[in-house]
């Protein structure tokens, strides 16, 4: 991505977040002044904003510790039964997202 374009996206993204969600459409329509690609880009990122709140919220080491392979687990965690879920996995897709 070009630096200038990214700076534009960044500025609009934060400016939109400062507004009530109902006022964002009007704001972006005005601010993008017909540049539909820019508007789409910012809107898409805004859609991910809520979901991203729980994304990579923990730390990498804790995340990784949840994925030890069964051999390692059997050495350290004899209470684990086959089929039992491990760690913070929430079974609904992204495991970097905290369940």
């Amino acid at each position: 991505m070009k630096h200038e374009r990214w700076k534009q996206i960044e500025q609009l993204y934060h400016a939109a977040l400062e507004r009530e969600s109902g006022a964002r459409d009007v704001f972006l329509a005005q601010a993008c002044a017909g540049d539909e690609e820019l508007r789409r880009e910012v809107e898409e990122l805004l859609r991910y904003d809520g979901a991203a709140e729980s994304f990579i919220q923990g730390n990498a080491l804790a995340f990784e510790a949840g994925r030890l392979d069964p051999e390692e687990l059997s050495q350290t965690a004899p209470q684990l039964v086959p089929g039992q879920s491990v760690g913070a996995y929430n079974g609904s897709g992204g495991m970097l997202v905290k369940g």
Partner: peptide, 9 residues
Amino acid sequence: AALMVSEQR
């Protein structure tokens, strides 16, 4: 299940 979770991680 543990292995599958592990690989996905």
